[in-house]
Simulated assay, not measured.
Amino acid sequence: MPSGASTRDPRTGILLPSEGEIESSIPTTWDDESNPISGREGNDISSLFSRLDSSPDAAFYAEPRFAEHVDDRAVESMTSYVSDRLLRRDDSVLDLCSSWTSHIRPGLREGLGLKRVAGLGMNAKELEANPSLTEWTVMDLNADGNVRLPYDDGSFDVVMIQLSVDYLIHPLEVMREASRVLRKDGRIAVLFSNRLFLSKAVGLWTGSDDLDHAYTVGAYLRFCDGGFANIAAEDLSTRQRRGRERVIVGDPMYVVTATKS
C-alpha cells in the first residue's frame, strides 16, 4: 500500500496527502499481491473488519442524525461533485448508505430528468426526510455476509456511497452487489473523508492514512469480482497555498470511481 502523506492536520494529527498524491494512489496494474485481503484467513480477516463497537448497527442508528458529518467546505465539494459531474440526464441513481441528504442540488432531479433516485440506509426518518429520493429502503448491510440488494440486475446507471465505506464489514460483497444492479458502463462513486464514528469504523480503515484509504477503496472495487474497470481516485479537498504547497484546509474529501465493464 502507498504511505507517507506529507503534512498533518493541525487539529487531529492525521496525515494528509500532498496535491496529486491521492490520484497516484491507485495502481496502473493490479495483481494478487495488491489485494489487502488476499491470503488472510479466519481471525486475521476478522481483525481487518472488526470494530471497537461490535453491537448491532440498528441500535447505533436508531435515532436520526440530521447533521452533516464533515464541514461546510467538504459538503460543498460532495454536492458539486455529485450534482455537477457525476449525474447525467435521465440517470437512475442508487444512493447506498443513504441518509437525510444525497448532496443533490435542489431542483436538479427534475432538471436532469433523473428517472429514479433510490436510497438505501439505516434510519427511516432520515430517508423519509431526504428530498432527492423517489423511493427508499431501510437495510443493514452489515447484518450478515449474505448481502443482497433489493433491486433487479442492471437497474441503475449510477451507484454512489457517501461517507460510509469505512463502516462496511462486508465491503467486497457490497461492491459486487453494486456491480450487479448497475447497467453495463454504469458508474460507481465512493466518496469519503477521514472524519468518522471511530467506534464503528473497521480496523482496516482506522489504522491507515488517506492514501491508504483511497488504495483500499480501489482494491475493494478491483477484487470484488464485480467487473469494475477504469478505477481512479481524485482529491476533492479544498486547498489553500501555504508557502510552496497548496495544502488541505478543513475536512478532506476524496472520491474513488469505476465503471462496470
Rank of each mutant, 00 (worst) to 15 (best):
Y215I: 05
D235A: 08
A189E: 04
E173N: 09
L149Y: 10
F156A: 00
V147Q: 06
D157C: 01
K184N: 14
D225A: 05
D212H: 11
L149R: 03
L168K: 09
S199I: 11
S199W: 02
A219R: 03
Q162A: 04
R246M: 01
L172H: 10
Y215S: 06
A219H: 05
Q240Y: 03
R244V: 09
D251I: 00
R187A: 15
D209R: 04
T137L: 03
T257N: 08
E128M: 11
L120N: 10
E234H: 11
R116W: 02
T134R: 10
L127G: 12
L149N: 04
E135Y: 12
V217E: 07
E128Q: 14
K184R: 15
D210W: 05
L141T: 07
Q240R: 14
P171F: 05
G207L: 06
E177Q: 13
D212I: 05
Q162N: 13
D140Y: 02
T238D: 10
D140F: 01
Y151L: 00
F197D: 12
A129F: 10
L120R: 11
K115M: 06
L141N: 10
L133I: 03
D140E: 04
S132K: 02
V202Q: 11
A229G: 12
R180A: 13
L168P: 04
S132W: 02
I188Q: 09
H170D: 14
R241P: 00
L168Q: 12
V159G: 03
A229N: 09
G227V: 11
Y220S: 04
A229I: 14
G154V: 01
L114Y: 01
V190D: 01
D235M: 05
D210T: 06
E177F: 02
A201R: 11
V181S: 07
Y220T: 04
S164A: 15
E128Y: 10
K125P: 00
K184Q: 14
I248P: 00
T137R: 15
Y254C: 05
I231M: 07
S155W: 00
L127C: 13
H213M: 07
L120I: 15
H170L: 08
E173K: 13
Y151E: 01
S208Q: 12
A118H: 13
I248H: 00
V249C: 02
P131G: 12
V165P: 00
V117F: 14
N146F: 02
R246K: 15
Y215K: 07
T206L: 08
R195K: 10
F228G: 06
N142F: 00
T137Q: 13
R176E: 11
L133R: 05
T257D: 01
L198W: 02
V181N: 09
N142T: 04
P252M: 03
E177C: 02
M160T: 03
L196V: 07
M122I: 09
G243C: 01
H170Y: 15
I248V: 15
V147H: 03
V159Y: 08
L133Y: 10
V217D: 07
P171D: 11
D235F: 06
V158L: 05
M122F: 12
D166Y: 03
L141E: 10
L198N: 02
D140I: 02
E177N: 06
S179Q: 12
T134C: 03
